[in-house]
Structures are given as C-alpha cells and as structure tokens.
Design a protein around this nucleic acid. Structure first.
Length: 712
RNA sequence: GCGCCCGUAGCUCAGCUGGAUAGAGCGACUGGCUACGAACCAGUAGGUCGGGAGUUCGACUCUCUCCGGGCGCACCA
C-alpha cells in the first residue's frame, strides 16, 4: 500500500506540519520589563503571581533604580535568567556584559559596582559577581519557603478577557484517530491554561457537515450499499442495539468509497466523481432526502466524537456547523463587506478571469499589474471557496459580521450544556462569538489558508483582531513503519524506510482514538490488578483508577512533545507508564498522599502548623538540603510557567514542569524519610515540603487535564 | 521554482528574550525493596548540537550557504 500526501482535507482531517505562521510573532511581541514576564499583547498577566515572579520583579525594579542612580541609565529591558546551577544563586543577570561597551568598562568591574550598590533587598540574602561578570542573586530561602507554602491553590482573578478556542473540528464522516486526539488534547489543555490565567473562554468545535468528506460517505451509503434514508435509520438503530459504533462503520465505508472513485474504468471513474459533486451540491443546498441522510449520519458521528472526547475530559460549549454558515447567508454578508473594503477585486483577465480574488499575504504586486498568484475566493461559477467561508466565520467570531447563528442544546455534560448551530434557534441561549482573542488549533499544513483569513481581516482594517488571531499550529501524528506493520497494513518497501508514515482517513490508515483508549485502559487495568492497588478492599475502585491512569498516560504523551515536532506514533511509547509519562507524575501524587494518610493528618493542617513554625532555616542549608530547596523553588514557579505557556502557545512547557517537579519530589521522597523523622520541627518542615509538592503537582496535572488518583 | 518546518547521546525528545561545564526519558551495564508501595531511586558508558562561513565579549539559539528529511504553494475542503 502506498500513501501519498492526501490533498484536500478540511481542517479537521489534516494533522500536521508546523510553520510558525506569519502572525505568530506579532501576538507575543510585547516587550515588558523582564524576559520571564512577557505577556503577549492580548494577554494580561494573571493578577495572582507566584513567589518567584514577585521576587523577580522586585530584583528587576531594584536593578533599574541602581542603574538609574549610578549610571543614569533607563533600560526598557533587563535580561533576567534562572542560573544553571543553585551554586550561582536563584536569579541572575548578564546585564554587565551589555553595558560594557556603553560604559567603556570591563563587565566584571561594572558587575562589582552594581553589586556594591544593590545592598539589601527584602527577600534576598545577597548579591555577588561570578564568572566574567554575571550578577547572581541569592534568595532568603526561609522567606521564600514561607511565602511558597502560603501560595493559594486557587484560580486566578478574572482578567476580563474573552477568548475563543476552536479545536477538534473533525469531519463528521468517520471515527476520530490519533491525529485528532493530538488536536483535541492540545486545544483542551490550552483552554484550561487560559482559564487558569483568569480568562473567560468559549470552546468551539467547527463541524463541516456539508463538505466533500461527508458527501463521500453519503455516496457510499447511496451507491455502494444502495441504502435509502429509511435504511440508514434502520442501520443506526441496529448498530445501537448491537453496541457498535457508527463512526467505525463509516471509517470503513469512507475508505471504500474513496477507493471506488479510482477503481473503475476511466468512464466509470468519471461518472463516480460526478456523483460525488452532485451529492456535495445536494448537501450544500439541503432539503432533499440525500441531505437528510447526510444530516442523520453526520450528526450520529458527531455525537460519537463528543463521546470519545468526553472520555478524555474534553468538553465543548458550541458546535457551529457549516450548514448554517451557508443557509444563514454568512458569506453573503461577508462578501459585501469584503468588496466594500476593497479586499476582494474582480479579475478580468488571466487564469483567474471571472473570479473574485484577494492578494496573498506578503505578495508585492505593482499597481495595475496582473496578479495570477492571487487567492480565489469566489469561483467563476459564483460559488465560494473554503477560505471565503472561513473569513465569514471569523468575522462572526470577532463579532464583526452583523449576523448570528440560531442555537439549540445538543449534548449535555454533567456541569453544562453544549449548543449547536441551527437556522431557527431557541431562546434564551448563551452568547457566543464577539471574542477579543481567538485561537485556532489547526494543523500546520493549513498555515496558508489561515494566513489568508488573517490577511483578509487586516485588509478590512481589523488590525487589532488580526493581531489577536492565533493559528495554534501543530505537526501531525504519523505512524512508525513498525507500528503500521503491527497493525496489519501492507506497507511498501519505500515506506518501510521512512521515519514515519502519514495517517490517512481516506485510506482508512491509522489508529482510531477509541481503540487506543480501550487498549490503554486494558493495559492500566492489568497493572492495577497486578499491584492490588489500594489493597484488597479497594477492588471496586480499580476500574476508575485504571481509567484515570490511562487518560493521564495518553494526555501526557500528546503534550510532552512541542507542537512543531511530528509525533511518530508507536504503541510501545504510548503504552509506557514509566519515566517521563503521566503515570510517573500521578505516582508521585499518590506517594505524597500516602504519607499524609499514614501520618493521619492533612496537607492543610500541616501547612497551618508550618506557618507557625520558626527556626527551620537550618533545614535549607548545607549540601544535603540543596535538593529540598530546589523542590521548593520549582514549586514557586507556578504562574511563571503558566504565563510562558500562554505567551508561546506551548503547553509542553507545563508538561515538562510537572515532570521535573515529580522527579524532584521522588528524589526527596527517597532521601528523606518523613514518618520516621524524630525531630518534630524537622518533621513538620518535611511534611510541609510534601504538602506543597502535592499541591503544585495536582494543580499542574489539572491544567494538563489529568486527574490525580487516590491510589495506584 | 517559491514558502514553511525539522536535523542535538544507540532511540525518542527538551534546551526560554543569544549567556556561565549541552539536559531528560527510553535502551545498555551496576547497585538499592521484611516498603512513607520499586509505576521508584542512585551510579556508569554515550554528543565535533547535519557541514561550512559570518555577526557577537559570548551562538544549540541570530544571518548566509550547502546537505539530508517532511509539508505547503487549486476556481478542494
């Protein structure tokens, strides 16, 4: 079997390459005082800042005042860094190197002068010069620990920012696969991060229910299987009684139909393709039996997608559908505006003659010259392209269209309702759209169309909105050749030599999301049973625990890679529970909880007691205490990491942070036996250390969408 | 042809606005459980950061160039 790059997938389908889209840089360009605190232009930093950030800011301001007083310098940015080793302190700046030329002095001399002037600063133990001119700051450890212990576990104050995240957006014509999982997990995690930072976030899952992909599966029902609308209804109820999945059924049918288009004689193939477009147009128009079959099937598949994602704790607020974008004439409204603002122009000559086109971003065309490279938005037959519809949709997202969807409830979650678009909606309904910042979790292969949409907004004069439009792009999930062979696919010699093989819904080539989840749960269940997790009496809790661990493993696996690295999927890696994995972190949580259980106390009680404790300074000094201090220090960097993740749209940083925290805790756990500690003050201190590690681990995991089991 | 991404230890990947001796996991080899549960910990081996040039006090990080791999560049979505 050969796999060629699939052409034409709607956004949902493609899982893929990165590409920092042109707009990215703009979103995070705002300069602020320090390098660690760079909220993007459209983000306010959380009002609740962690201990490390507070000290960092204090150090930064102190440095500024010293530089102003001593050298009459006003710098707009002072570089601050986390030293590579605790022996260099906890905060550092190489500012002296930068000033060397300006002040015509050696960096070391400058550093010495600055350090002499720094004197005392609350929260700091001292400053010193190191190396060729670094200025290192040492924290007052006891004060840092006390402040960190007192950090609240809670949610940050509201910032007033209303953001909209679009993710998942799978074509409703087949089962979700691992590529879709990466999309949904990245998107859902980012939503959690924005919410943790105090933003109001709406989660949208765009449903292309009238596209070619749905048309293809409808062609399969009608022409390969000879099914009518009644037959389709019957099939759905049959599958339901047999406990089978319609999305799985469509997975195979879609692959068969795709093959069918090219498996006949030349005339046959042409006739079949024609059938495809006739069907597509029927779906777009609506009101026919064909359209009704499409509606029936795509809605059933959509429900399956929501169920699959719910297994991963992923929920949505609103499902805008393409059918409403068409029928409610969103495009017509957008078209008028685009013409008015001169973003679109009618092409009178060249290959795009008769089309309405727009200039691509970055194109430099002299006035009056023919631009054959322009992007076609309205075809010469009068129909609108994908990018055109997307422009209309994005005008709506920012509240700039002057039109709205109808809404009706579609899917109920324990805490809230997910709404879907409809022509004539119900009242009352929640307000969607009109966001201040939007994030589109869409694979990197769609950088170009995304850039076109942004370009259109900018061209219309909506530059603020264009600046707050983030294409949250990520690379595809592919299969390793070994994995493909394992799954029983027939792989060509050529493909066997490749590092990875692209998943293809059209070919039916890939790993289905539910299959992977089932497999993971079975594997964790076996572990949990083998370990007698929770003891003999806890047997009833094991299925739930196995599920928590399985989901933790899966979510962490999808989040540990940075977005623009291709994930070459392999069961061996995905089913691993050791090392840098979700279960490793969960295990650290369970260990911490067990300490409190055995000690018959709670983290809250311990922290209350610790707040009264004096004289624990000595436990933070000496070589043996370095690892304990390192643990506290990392725990103190909660919002620093959160802000970094938001500013760079990169949840992987938090995944790494959680892992390192767990690693340091495990190390601490091994070296310092708490329950047998005889010195009561020291015991309280060690318990407080465990309490803070536990608090931060549970919080970080929750931001990653991973639960913390009671036992494992 | 144009554009984007990737190339860091045997494998899979981190490495923040350029900064102090390049890190982790897995795998390999050693050692540690009558236990705050070993889904763990400690140690050893392993890298000319694809090659070359440049900018800089300083380059894995920025620029140029070459090599290798992937992906875009439709009147498809």
């Amino acid at each position: 079997m050969k796999f060629k790059a699939a052409a034409a997938w709607p956004r949902a389908l493609c899982a893929e390459p990165s590409g920092w889209p042109a707009n990215r840089a703009r979103g995070i360009s705002a300069k602020s005082s320090t390098s660690y605190n760079r909220p993007s232009k459209n983000q306010e930093s959380p009002r609740h800042t962690d201990v490390y950030q507070k000290l960092q800011k204090r150090f930064d301001q102190h440095l500024r005042s010293v530089l102003a007083a001593k050298y009459d310098l006003q710098l707009d940015s002072i570089p601050l860094e986390i030293p590579p080793d605790l022996k260099f302190g906890e905060l550092a700046t190489p500012i002296a190197f930068e000033l060397a030329r300006k002040l015509r002095k050696a960096p070391k001399i400058i550093a010495q002068e600055i350090v002499a002037a720094l004197a005392g600063l609350e929260g700091f133990a001292g400053f010193e010069v190191a190396g060729a001119g670094y200025i290192n700051a040492r924290l007052n450890r006891a004060a840092g620990v006390r402040a960190t212990a007192a950090m609240e576990a809670g949610i940050h104050a509201a910032t007033g920012i209303h953001a909209l995240v679009e993710h998942t957006s799978i074509n409703p014509n087949k089962a979700a696969h691992i590529g879709h999982l990466r999309n949904a997990i990245l998107g859902d995690t980012f939503v959690r991060l924005l919410r943790a930072a105090g933003q109001k976030v709406d989660v949208q899952n765009y449903i292309d229910n009238t596209g070619v992909q749905v048309a293809d599966v409808v062609v399969g029902f009608l022409h390969l299987e000879g099914k009518s609308l009644a037959d389709a209804r019957l099939l759905l109820s049959e599958l339901k009684t047999k406990g089978q999945r319609i999305d799985y059924y469509c997975w195979d049918l879609y692959a068969r139909t795709s093959q069918w288009y090219t498996s006949g004689s030349a005339e046959e193939n042409e006739a079949r393709k024609k059938l495809r477009y006739v069907t597509l147009h029927e779906l777009e128009r609506g009101g026919s039996e064909t359209a009704e079959i499409a509606e029936l099937i795509s809605t059933a598949v959509l429900r399956r997608h929501l169920e699959t994602m719910l297994r991963l704790d992923i929920e949505y607020d609103f499902l805008p559908r393409e059918s409403e974008i068409l029928h409610l004439k969103f495009w017509e409204a957008a078209f008028e505006k685009l013409k008015q603002k001169g973003v679109l122009y009618y092409e009178n000559e060249g290959k795009n003659k008769g089309c309405w086109v727009m200039t691509r971003p970055g194109a430099e065309i002299a006035e009056g010259d023919l631009n054959e490279d322009a992007k076609v938005i309205v075809r010469s037959n009068g129909t609108v392209t994908y990018v055109g519809k997307d422009i209309a949709y994005h005008l709506w997202k920012f509240g700039l269209l002057g039109k709205d969807f109808g809404y009706k409830p579609f899917f109920s979650y324990p805490g809230h309702e997910c709404w879907i678009s409809t022509e004539k909606g119900e009242e009352p309904h929640p307000q969607f759209g009109g966001a201040q910042a939007i994030y589109n979790v869409i694979d990197a292969r769609q950088s170009d169309p995304q850039a076109n949409v942004i370009q259109a907004l900018r061209g219309m004069g909506y530059t603020d909105q264009a600046d707050r439009y983030t294409h949250f792009s990520y690379e595809m999930v592919a299969l390793t050749p070994r994995c493909a062979v394992e799954l029983g696919y027939d792989i060509s010699e050529e493909d066997l030599k490749r590092p990875y093989i692209e998943v293809s819904g059209r070919k039916g080539f890939g790993v289905k999301a539910d299959d992977l989840i089932d497999k993971l749960i079975a594997a964790t269940r076996a572990e949990v049973d083998a370990r007698q997790t929770g003891g003999a009496e806890a047997e009833a809790a094991r299925p739930r625990i196995a599920e928590q661990i399985a989901i933790g493993a899966l979510r962490y696996f999808m989040l540990k890679f940075t977005r623009n690295s291709v994930i070459a999927f392999d069961f061996k890696d995905a089913l691993s529970f050791e090392g840098e994995t979700g279960p490793y972190i969960q295990y650290a949580v369970v260990r911490a909880r067990n300490i409190f259980r055995k000690a018959a106390t709670t983290p809250k009680a311990v922290l209350a007691e610790f707040s009264e404790l004096a004289g624990f300074d000595t436990y933070l000094e000496g070589d043996a205490a370095e690892d304990i201090w390192a643990l506290w220090l990392r725990a103190a960097r909660r919002t620093l990491v959160l802000e970094q993740c938001i500013a760079t749209s990169e949840p992987a940083h938090l995944a790494k942070h959680a892992f390192q925290l767990a690693q340091e805790f495990n190390n601490f756990y091994h070296k310092h036996h708490i329950l047998t500690e005889e010195n009561p003050a020291r015991k309280t201190f060690l318990l407080a250390t465990a309490a803070v590690a536990l608090r931060e681990l549970v919080l970080a995991l929750s931001w990653l969408g991973i639960e913390s089991p009671e036992a494992m």
